[in-house]
């Protein structure tokens, strides 16, 4: 099975034998891939019943968790990486959770759909409607995304929270990148991927 592009990219950022916490781990694809390819250990946190079953089937450790309740079950610096793919925009208090991620983990990896993508801007500006795209497929009243942001928004929040951006990648939904994305990431990037660290 081919790995989702953002997951493939993230895998490359994670060193072998590390201990990883995956927030909103879905069906456990990333953790299973990391386990098989990089001998990574760790846990996935998930709230959806079917996803929990898939994780158990895959043989990864999954903990039923509501991310909106924070990460109080986890000790400071108990993971090498805390990963959250495509979930931060669904969280009640993304800023709090970001802080929690970097309390629990040495590094954080976050991916989200970029609301500053030109198609989103185009929808709002010309059509006057909330954007619907490959990265944001739901209508405004159905979407789970309650805290969408742009690359700039996210980076400003990191600055405010004393979070250092160690690495950034910008891709489209097929996880390809291009010269335009590299030149104007906040306009051409559909999905943003960040590797973060707390400034000591």
């Amino acid at each position: 099975m081919e790995l989702r592009t953002d997951l493939a990219l993230i895998s490359e950022w994670i060193t072998e034998n590390s201990h990883v916490l995956d927030l909103g781990c879905g069906d456990g694809t990333l953790l299973a891939h990391l386990r098989d390819s990089r001998s990574v250990t760790g846990y996935g946190l998930e709230i959806d019943d079917d996803n929990i079953i898939s994780c158990i089937k895959t043989g990864i450790n999954v903990i039923h968790t509501d991310l909106n309740q924070g990460l109080s079950d986890f000790n400071d610096n108990s993971f090498d990486y805390v990963v959250m793919t495509q979930a931060i925009q669904t969280i009640l208090h993304p800023d709090e959770l970001l802080k929690e991620m970097l309390r629990v983990g040495t590094q954080g990896i976050v991916t989200f759909p970029n609301f500053g993508h030109w198609r989103a801007r185009f929808s709002l500006f010309f059509d006057g409607i909330m954007p619907i795209s490959r990265a944001l497929p739901s209508k405004w009243y159905e979407t789970v995304n309650i805290h969408l942001c742009t690359l700039r928004d996210f980076e400003e929040l990191c600055y405010e929270l004393d979070i250092e951006i160690l690495q950034r990648a910008v891709v489209d939904t097929k996880h390809r990148t291009s010269w335009s994305m590299r030149l104007l990431p906040n306009i051409f990037g559909e999905i943003a991927i960040y590797r973060l660290r707390k400034i000591a």
């Binding site: 929990i52 450790n61 903990i63 108990s78």
Partner: peptide, 16 residues
Amino acid sequence: IVKALLDNKKNVSYAE
């Protein structure tokens, strides 16, 4: 129970 296992990095899955 789950937390105590997590603290020790033991293998655990938990379903509510």
